[in-house]
Design a binder for these strands. Structure first.
Length: 773
DNA sequence: CTGTTAACTATTTTT
DNA sequence: TAGTTAACAG
């Protein structure tokens, strides 16, 4: 039982509690992961079978860490039999095994947010709706919110309140779009992120056998970050745990920061009412931060109304005061941070990886990147687009997706003309139309293209494409994922094409593809784990990687400064933290100050940043910064005023005033600034002046009204001297001809149509008027 | 059909 | 400002 050594009293209590519901309220830095992993070890030690334990986390990283720590603690491979993973990956794994019940192929494709938006966009266009009004991203958010609350399309359309909302925002078709989107995903054999939760719930409610099976399989359930669960996750947990009720949730209401993703803080606040005889353990001793940091954090969170009562305390040293730094601009802020890092490294022998720069929005990373680069300080940005979201990677993966699941229309659309093979918009539109009319999949139209009267060139291209995919499918039956992937590169010529591109981006793209191939190889060579449901085929590979984010890319031990959003930093800790951009409008964000709930969530976010720091913390803000192309004046964040003065040190001010204006008087724009401001709201005139708008010079061509029966003639009939009519440029005369017989180019003079122009006859809308005798 | 250019619009956080 | 999409010329 030596694993119990080194635990404090409440920690030990949480570990030793065996059966019945348990809620662990774990303050920041209170040893939450240690408790969870030790608890699992204790369960195993007490004779619980690893196959009967389910542990759910929000990030792959947390899952991996937990698994490794348990394995280390046990000193055996027994930990591999545990079901540990993110909600999404565990549910995907189960859904893969049970897909047939729901009518999905077991190799269903998982759509990421970009795929989902793209599908929605085609649906919106098919419905002849304006995608400026029904923005795919917004529509998706609405659908996502519905799914996360377990609202089906039918319920959506029949819910009076929801319909009111959509009517008020003048988007009455929203429910229809939701319905069509769900149907399209089903037709495509695809699920989006939210479906993994929604369909899991559907599986358990519609199929009692399935419910029974998993209820009995998972005798012990552990949920990490319970405060971030949404209603769908809540319902699934409740179903899974209904038989044994051995549910252990760990969370901190003070760190609930994902309500925008559907999370309800109510889940943790209400847990005690959800089950009988809930054991509650509070972990209130903080092992991470200094007293001044922790006390400041306590004061901050004290401003929130609804919360579980607890007081974090620490035995750690008092530590230094929190440094508040004001700079004039965002660039100066970047420079200050880079300078401070350099200085700290020199003075206190810190290494790069001891520092984190944490911001509210991804867009803020730029000034820090620039200044760090200038100081030759290595860094890494987390967030932004992940490896798997890069164009070349998505394209390459789309081939693999289509090989596994040709029903995946989204994937087919992506690659049908990449690399260019002469299947353009016109052809794709026609295929889309046919698929709708005939009620068959996009792919089936391509397979039977011969029946639908495509132009000879287009037909040939389509047939070539279909043949290629089919032969790759055959290959995939007998060969592993890596071999198939290599053949994709050869068949499409993509690899060679990128290899020949010697531009900087081209080289980077080539390297990315190589890296992708390596990762596939690694995947196929990793030995199969024990336990059911796991295999190393192409389908399994795709499902795994579609749930990875760039935080899962590894490289956690390299010695670089980390830059990331506060959201991405949750669960991490650093000796030195720079919490930057503490300005009204930015943090708290202007989008989130309209209700008390929103503001409290922003405050929790501030609480999260502050508690990331172990010993040193900087809070910086800039007087003005570029946002949306123009210079914005900002007041310091109200959150700065919520920290008692005794914990703050203003002496590090990076130029300019030395203290934070407290309670009111903030920078008003001076009369001078106001006078010199451009109408657009930007900086003073002068350097930022734009070039004068073009006037007169480029006379817009007046639209030519074509003769009523305008029909283009065959390219072969044109030659020098012929008089012609162009659909847009009007009447003109051919001056000379060039180009080869297959691609003839005419130079034509249009008196009304803007003078001399070169026209490619293959594509031009050109009619012969009169031949010169 | 395809590559280029001009216009447009987005700025919150993410599995 | 920057990244992406629509329009358009070839």
């Amino acid at each position: 039982m030596d694993y119990l050594a080194g635990l404090n009293e409440p920690q030990r209590e949480a570990v030793l509690h065996m059966d019945g519901p348990l809620m662990i309220v774990a303050g920041a830095g209170s040893g939450k992961t240690k408790v969870l992993t030790t608890r699992i070890a204790h369960l195993l030690h007490s004779g619980v079978d690893a196959f009967n334990i389910l542990a759910l986390t929000f990030t792959n990283k947390a899952a991996r860490e937990m698994k490794e720590r348990v394995e280390h603690m046990l000193g055996s491979t027994e930990a591999r039999n545990l079901y540990i993973g993110t909600f999404h990956s565990v549910f995907a794994r189960i859904l893969r095994a049970e897909a047939h019940r729901l009518g999905f192929p077991n190799n269903f494709t998982i759509y990421d947010t970009d795929d989902a938006k793209s599908v929605l966009k085609t649906i919106i266009n098919e419905q002849n709706l304006d995608d400026k009004h029904y923005k795919p991203g917004q529509v998706l958010n609405r659908i996502s919110a519905a799914k996360n609350s377990l609202v089906s399309p039918q319920e959506y359309e029949h819910d009076y309140y929801i319909q009111q909302e959509d009517t008020r925002s003048n988007r009455p078709m929203m429910g229809k779009l939701y319905d069509l989107y769900v149907k399209r995903c089903f037709k495509n054999g695809a699920m989006d992120f939210d479906d993994l939760l929604f369909k899991m719930h559907e599986l358990l409610t519609r199929f009692p056998e399935a419910l029974h099976k998993y209820q009995h399989k998972f005798k012990y359930i552990l949920i990490d970050e319970y405060q971030d669960t949404n209603p769908a996750q809540y319902a699934v947990i409740k179903l899974l745990g209904a038989v044994y009720e051995n549910i252990c949730v760990v969370g901190d209401d003070a760190q609930s920061i994902y309500s925008f993703r559907g999370a309800t803080i109510q889940n943790i606040l209400q847990f005690e009412n959800d089950y009988e005889d809930v054991k509650v353990v509070k972990l209130e001793q903080n092992y991470r931060s200094t007293k001044s940091i922790l006390n400041a954090a306590n004061k901050i969170i004290g401003n929130n109304k609804s919360q579980i009562e607890k007081i974090l305390w620490t035995d750690n040293a008092d530590g230094e005061k929190i440094r508040v730094v004001r700079t004039m601009t965002d660039n100066e802020e970047g420079k200050f941070v880079a300078d401070a890092i350099a200085e700290q490294k020199l003075r206190n022998h810190y290494s790069n990886k001891d520092f984190a720069i944490l911001y509210r929005t991804n867009a803020q990373s730029r000034s820090f990147e620039e200044s760090l680069r200038r100081m030759n300080i290595p860094y890494r940005i987390y967030g932004g687009l992940s490896f798997y979201q890069r164009k070349e990677i998505k394209d390459y993966l789309a081939y693999l997706r289509v090989i596994v699941n040709p029903r995946d229309e989204e994937g087919v659309r992506r690659i049908i003309n990449y690399p260019a093979r002469g299947i353009g918009k016109t052809t794709v539109d026609k295929v889309t139309l046919l698929a709708g009319e005939q009620d068959i999949t996009f792919w089936e139209v391509l397979e039977r293209a011969g029946e639908y009267g495509f132009r000879a060139g287009a037909l040939e291209a389509i047939e070539g494409f279909v043949t290629m995919i089919k032969s790759l499918r055959v290959l995939a039956e007998k060969h592993n994922a890596y071999e198939v992937a290599v053949q994709v590169g050869k068949s499409t010529n993509m690899v060679r094409e990128l290899f020949n591109d010697k531009s900087t981006e081209g080289v980077a793209r080539y390297e990315n593809i190589q890296e992708l191939l390596n990762s596939i190889k690694e995947f196929t060579e990793t030995p199969t784990e024990d336990g059911e449901l796991i295999e190393r085929g192409l389908g399994a590979y795709l499902q795994q990687i579609s749930l990875l984010t760039d935080a899962d890319q590894g490289g956690d031990d390299v010695d670089v400064v980390r830059l990331m959003t506060i959201h991405a930093a949750k669960g991490l800790e650093f000796p030195c933290v720079f919490s930057v951009g503490l300005e009204e409008g930015l943090f708290p964000n202007a989008m989130a100050v309209n209700t008390r709930e929103e503001l409290e969530e922003e405050r929790r976010l501030f609480y999260v940043v502050v508690t990331r720091a172990k010993s040193k913390l900087w809070l910086t803000y800039a007087n003005s910064r570029y946002r949306f192309g123009s210079l914005m004046q900002n007041e310091p964040s109200r959150f700065l005023q919520e920290i008692p003065e005794e914990h703050l040190d203003h002496s590090f001010a990076g130029g300019g005033m030395r203290n934070v204006p407290r309670g009111g008087s903030l920078w008003k724009e001076s009369a001078y600034e106001r006078m010199h401001r451009q109408p657009g709201g930007g900086a003073a005139a002068g350097s930022t002046a734009r070039p004068a708008p073009k006037t007169g010079g480029s006379s817009k061509v007046v639209a030519h009204v074509p003769t009523p029966d305008f029909a283009p003639d065959d390219p072969a009939v044109f030659e020098a001297g012929v008089e012609v009519e162009h659909l847009k440029f009007g009447f003109g005369k051919v001056l000379r001809m060039e180009g080869n017989p297959n691609n003839r180019i005419a130079t034509i003079f249009f008196p009304q149509g803007g003078g001399e122009k070169k026209i490619m006859l293959n594509y031009a809308k050109l009619r012969m008027v009169r031949k010169e005798e």
